[in-house]
């Protein structure tokens, strides 16, 4: 079964951490990615750009509108996503618990169906 771990936080938070704290948080991501890659259960991982680069397409009445900005102007935004393979939702929750807490919340959500692939450039390259 595939599960998505959706990362939600206020966009300002991560950048406000000290360099050291940012590294600590990233270490937890790297460790989880390494572990999942090792067991062959990491199907995709993606970090989304800041919502200042987002646009929203939406039908309003007769018109198809293309609007600047993210879908919802909320205090917490979708910042990134993991797609992992787990036996049970409990197992997926256990993985989400390994991610840095206090700076983001993690929505664990089973995937109905899927396809395609996400190729992400190496952030360090």
């Amino acid at each position: 079964m595939q599960y998505a771990i959706l990362i939600y936080s206020s966009e300002d938070i991560f950048g406000r951490l000290t360099d050291e704290e940012q590294e600590q948080a990233l270490d937890k991501h790297r460790a989880l990615q390494q572990e999942l890659t090792g067991s062959g259960t990491l199907d995709a991982v993606a970090k989304l750009m800041d919502t200042s680069s987002a646009m929203t397409v939406r039908q309003t009445g007769e018109n198809l509108l293309v609007l600047d900005g993210p879908f919802a102007e909320t205090k917490e935004q979708l910042l990134g996503i993991y797609v992992i393979e787990c036996e049970t939702i409990d197992a997926a929750i256990e993985q989400a618990k390994k991610l840095p807490q206090g700076i983001a919340a993690y929505e664990v959500r089973p995937i109905g169906w899927g396809g395609g692939k996400i190729a992400v450039e190496d952030a360090d390259s």
Binding site: I13, R16, L17, T18, E21, G102
Partner: peptide
């Protein structure tokens, strides 16, 4: 330590 860092980040973000 993580928590105090997170709190400080929330302060400055807000």
């Amino acid at each position: 330590l993580d928590e105090s860092g997170a709190i400080a980040a929330h302060f400055s973000a807000a």
